[in-house]
């Protein structure tokens, strides 16, 4: 299997140049970041772009830093960099967990965070993690404007996201968590490195006495996109996170998140995995919050 002939290949070196190229070639063009999803799609001829705009030479699109109370992750930050970055390991371990779970080492050396979010595979690792952290995408437009969109709204469905032909995601922004916050992410897959049968991301904030002040739980591997377990998270608020409560939250999440049969697993098996995984992940998140 081989990609269709590529008429134009561009390797711009700054964002302005990318936007100009998008304006000229938008309809026929695909942005190529890590290529770990796009290249297989091109080989299968499910994507047949005439024009490739390769983002890998664009400068300063991969930095990771905190600024004005928000974590900025450049669009081109590789999974391997997110998985090992000291700031992320320290304050956003949930993101490092997700990055570490993607594919295999070679894929993590190439794949990018914005590429994964724009690709919008419902079983991918980043979307539930970034949703649990209330992440947003900063999108540059060819007309010079920018917009910011919550990942919840950006994800439209399986392999569908709210990105225009003349737009480029330049970074991901995540609010710096309150004190005594912690997060965790875990997934179940058939073999190492595969997409999730289900995955669970949780982010928890505790008060000084260990009572849960805020909780968010997001389940991946479900259709049409990762789902928030709002009722399960609501159960945790204002309470001490003891074992019976966590079991109850698992039950609630399994009840409220709709699952479907597919080639990887049955709906019933998915629900059971949600039931047992939510308590484990919330427990790990609250342990980290208390550290």
């Amino acid at each position: 299997m081989y990609p269709r002939a590529i008429e134009n290949y561009f390797a711009p070196t700054d964002v302005a140049e990318v936007l100009t190229l998008l304006q000229q070639h938008g309809e026929q063009a695909k942005l190529l970041a890590g290529g770990q999803s796009l290249m297989p799609l091109m080989k299968l001829r499910l994507a047949e772009p005439q024009t490739i705009i390769d983002l890998n030479q664009v400068a300063a699109l991969d930095d990771i830093r905190e600024e004005n109370g928000r974590l900025h992750i450049g669009a081109l930050a590789r999974h391997a960099d997110v998985a090992t970055h000291p700031l992320i390991l320290q304050s956003y371990p949930l993101l490092a967990d997700a990055a570490r779970n993607i594919g295999d080492p070679q894929i993590r050396n190439r794949g990018t965070i914005a590429g994964s979010l724009v690709h919008a595979d419902p079983s991918a690792d980043y979307p539930p993690a970034v949703m649990a952290l209330d992440g947003q995408l900063v999108v540059a437009k060819a007309d010079g404007g920018t917009r910011t969109v919550a990942l919840d709204d950006f994800l439209a469905g399986p392999l569908m996201s709210d990105i225009g032909e003349d737009e480029l995601v330049t970074r991901i922004e995540i609010p710096v968590p309150a004190a005594r916050s912690g997060g965790a992410y875990a997934k179940h897959s058939q073999v190492a490195g595969d997409f999730a049968i289900i995955s669970v991301a949780a982010h928890i904030t505790l008060d000084p006495s260990g009572i849960c002040q805020q909780a968010s739980i997001v389940v991946g591997g479900v259709m049409p996109k990762p789902g928030r377990a709002g009722q399960a998270a609501g159960l945790l608020q204002g309470k001490a996170l003891d074992a019976p409560l966590l079991t109850q939250a698992g039950e609630a999440a399994a009840e409220e998140v709709e699952t479907e049969d597919d080639v990887r697993a049955s709906a019933a098996y998915r629900s059971q995995l949600i039931r047992v995984t939510v308590p484990e992940v919330v427990r790990q998140a609250s342990t980290r919050a208390g550290e």
Partner: peptide, 15 residues
């Protein structure tokens, strides 16, 4: 310096 899968890159990307 990084391990990559050479079937997921275009040769022009390695110019």
């Amino acid at each position: 310096g990084k391990a990559v899968k050479a079937c997921l890159l275009l040769a022009v990307q390695a110019d």
